[in-house]
């Protein structure tokens, strides 16, 4: 199947915005992603080292049934929706996304480092691009807007140093 083009970004933005609005109207809360990852992390740690996980001041907050949570179900939905959309557009393919001037191995090393920084900082900030920036952006939450500007500042500052990865 030939890969289809992505949809117009403004159309996708309206679709995403209406999704967020429906979460506000139905549940009184917004979207999220990193919170669900955190709960999966605690579930995993609970299997590996239950005593250690329960004794930890941060993990213990999620220790009691970590996966029974709204965000966990929402992210399972994200997996289904992303997969369906990708399948319909002919975009399901095992590959590594990168620029032309970097090896797959180096790209994967940077993906892991970037992921670690994101995981760490999403916990520090109490949310990520979905749960903090997008959700709080729409409710005009002060901390969300501060976070959003800081994200763009950090990314533009770092971009020069990893340019060989992308361009």
């Amino acid at each position: 199947m030939k890969e289809q083009k992505f949809w117009n970004p403004y159309l996708a933005g309206v679709g995403l915005g209406l999704t967020l609005l429906s979460a506000f109207v139905l549940m009184g809360r917004g979207l999220g992603a990193s919170g669900a990852l955190m709960r999966f992390d605690v579930w995993l740690l609970k299997v590996i080292a239950p005593g250690h996980t329960q004794a930890n001041a941060y993990f213990s907050k999620y220790f009691e049934s970590p996966l029974s949570n709204w965000l966990v179900f929402e992210v399972i939905g994200v997996m289904i929706g992303g997969f369906l959309s990708g399948a319909l557009a002919g975009r399901l393919k095992v590959k590594t996304g990168k620029g032309p001037n970097i090896s797959v191995k180096n790209r994967l090393i940077l993906a892991f480092i970037g992921g670690s920084l994101i995981g760490f900082s999403a916990r520090l900030a109490r949310g990520c691009t979905s749960g903090l920036a997008l959700t709080g952006g729409a409710t005009l939450a002060l901390g969300s807007w501060a976070f959003m500007f800081a994200v763009f500042a950090g990314a533009y500052a770092a971009a020069y140093f990893v340019r060989k990865q992308w361009i």
């Binding site: 979207l31 992603a33 990193s34 990852l37 992210v75 994200v78 997996m79 992303g82 996304g97 940077l110 993906a111 892991f112 480092i113 970037g114 992921g115 670690s116 920084l117 994101i118 995981g119 760490f120 900082s121 999403a122 520090l124 900030a125 109490r126 990520c128 691009t129 979905s130 903090l132 901390g143 969300s144 501060a146 976070f147 959003m148 500007f149 800081a150 994200v151 763009f152 500042a153 950090g154 990314a155 533009y156 500052a157 770092a158 971009a159 990893v162 990865q165 992308w166």
Partner: peptide, 23 residues
């Protein structure tokens, strides 16, 4: 949130994804 956002931004440029998009 400002410190977290700066680190998050660096992670975004280095890693190429944020949590939701990586899923």
């Amino acid at each position: 949130q400002v410190v977290g956002g700066l680190i998050f931004g660096i992670g975004f440029a280095v890693g190429g994804y944020c949590p939701g998009t990586s899923v």
